[in-house]
Design a protein around this nucleic acid. Structure first.
Lengths: 251, 251
DNA sequence: CGAACCCTTGACAGAAATCAACTAAGGTGG
DNA sequence: CCACCTTAGTTGATTTCTGTCAAGGGTTCG
């Protein structure tokens, strides 16, 4: 582990409340590692031996069944993921792979479980984190069940703009095929949907998104705090929408 | 509150670990109430003032947006719901209404938040509960994204059979329109889908489900522990599939 | 007994997946 | 540096799935 890794991790909401000695003990047992792009970090169903912390790069969480696959989330620095499986000492429900070259910290989940039983402050942080993750998943499920794919695409594009500071133009943080999968549709369908959205106030040219008529887009999306969130609650868990730069919202 | 309410509540995983005096202090501030069928207990977006515990009857958790509505879960005795909102002191993401006459305990969330900061055992229970709820929502989202509606119906029917003890026949625990909404489809679509499933090894006649060819149904469903669960992890949160009798699995 | 309400069925329209072909961009290796 | 290959993205044609609208039968409950 590099010397400047620790302050980054300590700064996470999950770790900043705990006693320093416990934090250090935990980091003592952890190790950092660099991974190439496209590497499978976690397989669905494996025992949850490590809590993962993304320091650099980005990680895709995905699920598969019957030969199909779908993206569940994209995790960016500095965030943790698969906390719940570690806590419950249960098999991972999602798989994870690096999107680009990435640097991660692996925290042994056995030590994690031991420490939150001894450190009440840490327990509170874990509670807060899990509650936030849960709420993010509920928002996600609501979006899937209440909106059709066109509405999901539009709300995604508008939300990204808001997260970037209500900018009129920004770059997509992930490639379109991944975005399509995240939004629960095929790449072909996304491609066509983006065309039709040009008349709804947003244009996508390659990776660039341009809000051409915010009022019109807003009218279509009908943004809802109880779906799109005031601000992502579970940033540090990374179980949110793929973001442009998660770190910028947390500081 | 009735005298026999307390042991029931104390028996919940969420409350059985905490110090008795804290439990009693919490119950002191809580109150029980009976509600008629179809009463709206919680509105989406309201501040989370109370953790709810279902003692009798059943409660539907649902979400709405743009005039649409969908069922997110059905909670049965004895279970709690909307813990995460209480913990975070944030607005409810889902609404709740009674399905039949119901008896609930309302626990002030302010007291709840105070106590888990003082009682480490309770904090651990909360962590366990939230992690389980989270994982249930992940399973849910996976099912929505990886399976089409026919597969979701089939897996629901097979799962209910398993939960009831691998019985060949059982009664649907909820009415079909609610089930359809829970599974993310229209009542008409569910009705038609049930017809087509007769050739896949399961027949539904009114509220009665009959597994006519378990092997064939199994082949269609391809049950997956990482979606359908070995057993519901978050029973006491009730954020699971509508169940025949939640209590029977917990004891 | 009547009024809701649930469920089902049919006809139709719309949404989304699939299959196939083609373009463009990026990376690799000669 | 260029030829080649791989892959993301797009577009069109088609099929499949799903929602919508409408109507009718059955049940429950006041």
């Amino acid at each position: 582990m590099r010397p400047d890794d620790l302050p980054e991790i300590r700064h996470l909401p999950l770790f900043q409340g705990m006693a320093l000695e416990n934090f250090e003990a935990l980091m003592e047992k952890s190790y950092a590692q660099n991974f190439p792009a496209g590497l499978e970090l976690i397989r669905q169903g494996d025992p949850a031996d490590f809590l993962h912390v993304v320091l650099e790069g980005s990680v895709e969480l995905y699920a598969s069944w019957a030969g199909r696959e779908c993206t569940m989330a994209v995790v960016r620095p500095v965030s943790t993921f698969i906390l719940a499986a570690c806590i419950k000492d249960a098999p991972y429900l999602m798989a994870a792979r690096t999107l680009g070259r990435s640097r991660l910290i692996l925290v042994p989940s056995a030590d994690l479980r031991q420490i939150f039983r001894r450190d009440p402050e840490f327990a509170v942080s874990v509670i807060d984190e899990l509650a936030a993750c849960y709420r993010t998943m509920v928002r996600n499920a609501k979006s899937l069940k209440l909106r059709n794919s066109r509405e999901r695409v539009a709300s995604y594009l508008l939300r990204q703009s808001r997260l970037a500071g209500d900018v009129a133009s920004y770059m997509l943080p992930v490639e379109k095929r991944l975005l399509a999968s995240y939004l629960g549709m095929t790449p072909e369908n996304l491609s066509r949907t983006l065309r039709t959205l040009e008349s709804a106030g947003v244009k996508v040219d390659g990776m660039r998104v341009i809000i051409t008529d915010r009022a019109k887009l807003n009218a279509l999306v009908q943004p809802d705090l109880l779906i799109d969130g005031p601000d992502p609650e579970a940033i540090s868990a990374g179980i949110g929408l793929p973001m442009i730069n998660a770190a910028s919202y947390r500081r």
